[in-house]
Simulated scan of single mutants.
Amino acid sequence: MISITEWQKIGMGTTGFGIFFILFGVLLYFDSVLLAFGNLLFLTGLSFIIGLRKTFSFFFQRHKLKGTSFFLGGVVIVLLRWPLLGMLLETYGFFNLFKGFFPVAFGFLGNAFNIPFLSSLFRRLQGTSSMV
Rank of each mutant, 00 (worst) to 15 (best):
M1C: 04
M1P: 01
M1V: 11
I2P: 13
G11F: 01
G13K: 01
G13S: 04
T14S: 06
F20Y: 12
I22Y: 06
F24A: 13
F24N: 09
G25N: 08
L27E: 07
L28R: 13
Y29W: 14
F30W: 06
L35W: 05
L35D: 01
F37K: 04
G38W: 00
G38M: 10
N39C: 15
N39M: 03
N39A: 14
L40Q: 05
L43G: 05
S47N: 09
S47K: 10
I50G: 09
G51D: 01
L52K: 08
R53D: 14
S57P: 02
S57G: 00
F58L: 14
F59A: 07
F59D: 03
F59S: 05
F59W: 04
Q61D: 12
Q61P: 00
K64D: 01
K66Y: 10
S69P: 00
L72S: 03
G73W: 07
V76I: 15
W82G: 01
P83L: 11
P83D: 05
P83E: 10
P83N: 13
L85R: 08
L85D: 04
M87A: 12
L88F: 15
L88R: 09
L89V: 13
E90I: 14
E90R: 12
E90H: 04
T91S: 15
G93T: 09
F95M: 12
L97R: 07
L97N: 11
F98E: 10
F98C: 11
G100P: 09
P103Y: 11
V104D: 07
F106V: 06
F106Q: 02
G107Y: 04
F108R: 10
F108Q: 00
L109N: 00
N111I: 02
A112I: 02
N114V: 00
N114S: 15
I115D: 13
F117K: 10
L118G: 06
S120M: 09
F122S: 07
L125G: 09
Q126H: 09
T128D: 15
S129G: 02
